[in-house]
Design a protein around this nucleic acid. Structure first.
Length: 877
RNA sequence: GGGCGCGUAGCUCAGUGGGAGAGCGCUCGCUUCACACGCGAGAGGUCGCUGGUUCGAAACCAGCCGUGCCCACCA
């Protein structure tokens, strides 16, 4: 280390992430570590496709958590020397982009319709170029080791080819078809949306009961509805076939009030005789249930509400042009005048809203493109049943399977412009339809002009191809060979159906492989008060602000530490814990690096594994073996370190990030810093070579172990390590060395620690001044050297009569020891011990326990009882 | 209507059959030459309630109470 470097290390008593992070990130990028060559096979390499954020998106906590998890696993594999790709990209997000741009256009007093398709798309591309990479830059702030040189976009030219190929093949198989069907019309985005983009909310409406006169009879049928305006589109009335009140009416007709249309009275099981009067008005044009019933009985389908949300010509002159809400009032008023409005009552029920625009869904019949999913689902169900795709935690496997087993056709067309335009062309002259991957020039039948379908595909149709389309499919590219299938996917559960299930289906259909081996469904991070984090509620917490204040490592540690298999509240304390850990790492490293006797400065980690990390030095310099510790505390810390490496690694590999980081934290803080460093300080200051070697070895391994979760601070500290030959980002990840496990050393040092603790506690209780060193004798085995030093005792043979016992330590009286406090403390301890002895005796007197409990449990109980008895006897002398 | 989850220290959460844990907060004592974003020592829980299984239950089973989420076509 140069003198300047040493001085700066000496001077910085606090770790400052803001100063470090951008510099370190730039070094990684310069090293090209995140841009793997497209070589080898997918089995050899390690790859992850990032869940592509929307181009309109800004980094939110969900991205940050997901990023922290992916980066931890990706970095670990990269350090292990795998050819590692974390594929980055963004999603074109049709609806979101439309929302942004149309808002802009409205502010300018115009609209996309006025602008026209071509100009709108130009504007959309310009917007994408300007803002689309914002989230990518934000991922860099997090330290995400994505391949920034291989960024993909779901509207890339090659991606478009993949989409067209998939569309045509599904069409050829008869899975994709065009139909007039009941769809979810979103007046907000003025497009159809799929069932998965609809959310139901409880709403209080008014339930109206309306009398429908029966034709040629004095009777009326009273029907109930929350949407009286849709009665204009009624084409039947239904009753339950078992409902005796109406048996005689089935097959006859009602007369629709205000309209005069004759409505057949049909019988159908769907009608609940208990609800209202047991008679249901049927509106196939505007209600999904009624639509099904209508198709079943071949009823007329009338649409009275248009896609603009206004009443159409079909509704009649009186209503045409009104909004649905206006029409409702007029209809109700007219019914009231005619004396047909039987009742109005408040009614709470669930109503569909658009997840995207937030507006109430208008169900209507429309000519749209659909994709049958049942055949595609079959292999995707089997793959998960057979654990070829493993979903964790386990309950999500069943949720996935339940949904897949009840899958319904998917409406894939959208009345939008930004997106993959549907690759279908129509010939108006001969009414022929062409589906093609490349735009056909003329009609193949009559040579007439062709007109492309106006609509675009659901954004999720293209996202469903993400893991392979980003790697060049349908071409057989080196990237595809090297990195597909990918290894895992981490995601929040809200896109399990929307995205994950569809990727599994398309991957199996088009590549014959599962797209990834593991799916890990992670926590949703809620706001501090337990509410959803959302922009509209104002409950969002900005990860970038957190990074500004605490550093990326702190945020990453905090998110991983708070994560769980269930939803958790955002915890400032956990982020602070991460910041504290970064600072502690920095300062403990300063202690080591500024005080070691650095004659031996090679890398033990490299030596043991014999690896030369990519991007590291030439790999030819001499390597030293692991330190061969002579002192028991050295053997202890090395043993604990290796065990920690083993368990942290195992926890990371099983996606248990919270326990992984907390285990690393507690080893480092409690064992390495609080005990080992305190124990060895005198040897370190003395310049003893053995302890220096042990400390440098331990530091190297701790930094490497923590690098996947806290990449910046570990990389920065590593830059001062004498064994450094290259960046930590590509340094070997530690493998646990079981030959260093040492149960004997662990037991010995832990006993010393325990005694030290008891001595300190005793001092505190008798209120002896902190600085005073107490004289005492030890009966039995002499404790380790550090016990007396850290507890501020001096062990000697002679000092008169002991006035107190703490374990084997007999404390001599001295002026600083208040006799009364000592006596009180002694009595307290005796009382404690008596109760412990009593408890043990009671338990061992229980015949059931002695007879049925496992022998080792009983033995343990006996041992404890013996120890307590012995101590009590000692104190009673 | 169906499904899944949760209820443990003041707060946020771990803990799946052998004496209740962590972080933060709180109390007391320390400016001890890595770190006051620190060090040492403490206080604080009838583990939602009621039954059951077991020698032994925070953990397993049943019921209840409270709470969150997902799915679902009763107007």
């Amino acid at each position: 280390m140069s003198d300047e470097r040493r001085d700066s290390l000496q001077a910085k008593t606090r770790y400052d992430p803001a100063e470090v992070e951008r510099r370190i990130f730039a070094e990684w990028m310069e090293g090209g570590y995140f841009h793997p060559p497209a070589e080898g096979t997918a089995e050899e390499s390690f790859s992850v496709a990032i869940p592509p954020p929307n181009v309109t998106g800004a980094l939110h906590m969900g991205h940050a958590l997901n990023g922290a998890m992916q980066d931890a696993l990706v970095r670990m594999q990269r350090m292990r020397g795998r050819n590692t790709l974390w594929l980055l990209g963004t999603d074109h997000a049709s609806i979101a982009v439309h929302a942004v741009l149309e808002k802009e256009l409205r502010a300018e007093g115009t609209s996309r319709q006025e602008l026209g398709r071509e100009a709108f798309l130009e504007r959309a591309w310009a917007w994408k170029e300007e803002y689309g990479s914002r989230i990518v830059e934000q991922l860099q702030r997090l330290g995400a080791s994505c391949d920034y040189d291989r960024e993909r976009f779901t509207l890339d030219e090659s991606y478009v080819r993949a989409v067209h190929r998939v569309f045509r093949q599904l069409f050829d198989k008869g899975y994709i078809y065009r139909d007039n069907y009941m769809v979810n019309w979103d007046p907000g985005s003025r497009s159809v949306i799929s069932d998965l983009e609809v959310e139901n909310r409880e709403v209080e409406d008014t339930l109206y009961s309306i009398d429908y006169p029966v034709e040629a009879a004095e009777r009326v049928l009273t029907v109930a509805t929350v949407r009286p305006e849709t009665m204009l589109a009624d084409t039947a009335v239904a009753v339950n076939p078992d409902d005796e009140r109406y048996t005689d009416l089935v097959g006859r007709h009602c007369v629709l009030p205000l309209v005069g249309r004759r409505l057949p009275i049909v019988a159908d099981d769907h009608v609940d005789p208990e609800f209202g009067t047991g008679a249901l008005k049927i509106t196939p044009g505007h209600d999904p249930n009624d639509f099904e019933i209508g198709r079943k009985y071949g009823l007329e389908e009338i649409g009275v509400i248009g896609s603009d949300g206004r009443m159409s010509e079909e509704a009649g002159e009186r209503f045409a042009g009104m909004t649905a809400a206006e029409a409702r009032e007029v209809v109700v008023e007219a019914l009231r005048e005619e004396g047909l409005l039987r009742a109005e009552e408040p009614y709470v029920h669930s109503v569909p809203f658009s997840h995207r625009s937030g507006e109430r869904i208008e169900p209507l019949i429309s000519l749209q493109w659909f994709c049958r999913m049942d055949e595609l689902a079959k292999p995707a169900i089997e793959a998960v049943e057979r654990d070829e795709v493993r979903i964790a935690p386990a309950q999500w496997k069943r949720v996935y399977l339940d949904w897949m087993n009840n899958i319904r056709p998917w409406c894939i067309s959208r009345q939008l412009w930004w997106g993959h335009r549907i690759p279908v062309w129509y010939c108006d002259a001969c009414e022929e339809t062409f589906v093609a991957e490349e735009p056909p020039r003329r009609c193949g039948v009559c040579d007439g002009e062709l007109r492309q379908d106006e609509d675009v595909l659901d954004t999720w149709f293209s996202s469903a191809l993400w893991p392979f389309a980003t790697l060049g499919w349908p071409d057989d590219t080196p990237e595809l060979r090297a990195f597909y299938p990918t290894d895992f996917l981490t995601t929040a559960r809200d896109i399990l159906f929307l995205w994950v299930a569809r990727m599994v289906m398309t991957a199996l259909e088009f590549t014959d492989r599962v797209p990834f081996r593991d799916v890990y469904v992670h926590s949703v991070i809620q706001a501090r008060d337990g509410r959803r984090m959302s922009k509209s509620l104002g409950t969002g917490i900005d990860p970038l602000e957190e990074i500004d204040v605490h550093g990326a490592d702190a945020l990453r540690f905090g998110l991983l530490a708070m994560s769980s298999t269930q939803d958790v509240r955002y915890s400032d304390a956990k982020v602070q814990q991460g910041a504290d850990l970064a600072n502690k790492l920095w300062n403990a490293s300063r202690l080591i690096l500024l005080n070691v006797n650095s004659e031996r400065n090679q890398s033990p980690l490299n030596a043991r594994q014999g690896q030369v990390p990519a991007g590291a030095g030439d790999g030819t310099s001499a390597r030293l073996p692991a330190p061969s510790p002579v002192r028991v505390e050295d053997r202890w810390i090395l043993s604990r370190l290796e065990r920690t490496i083993a368990s942290v690694t195992e926890l990371l590999e099983s996606y248990d990030f919270a326990h992984a980081v907390q285990e690393a934290y507690s080893f480092f803080w409690s064992e390495l810093c609080d005990w080992y460093l305190e124990i060895v300080k005198p040897r370190l200051y003395d310049g003893e070579p053995e302890v220096s070697a042990t400390l440098l070895w331990a530091l190297e391994r701790v930094l490497a172990l923590l690098h996947p979760t806290m990449p910046f601070v570990t990389e920065e500290i590593w830059s001062y390590h004498p064994a450094r030959e290259g960046h930590l980002a590509v340094h070997p990840f530690p493998e646990p060395d079981e030959s260093l496990f040492d149960p004997g050393a662990e037991a010995d040092v832990e006993a010393g620690i325990e005694l030290t603790r008891r001595l300190r506690a005793w001092r505190d209780l008798v209120e002896v001044p902190v600085a005073s060193v107490l004289a005492a004798r030890v009966d039995g085995v002499e404790p380790q050297e550090f016990v007396a030093r850290l507890a501020r005792f001096e062990f000697e043979q002679d000092g008169g009569d002991p006035i107190a016992s703490v374990g084997p330590v007999r404390v001599f009286s001295s002026a600083e020891l208040p006799a009364e406090a000592v006596a009180a403390r002694l009595e307290n301890r005796r009382a404690e011990l008596r109760s412990e002895v009593e408890r043990g005796e009671r338990k061992l007197a229980d015949e059931g326990f002695v007879a049925k409990a496992p022998a080792e449990v009983v033995e343990e109980e006996r041992g404890k009882l013996e120890r307590y008895r012995a101590e009590l006897e000692e104190l009673s002398e």
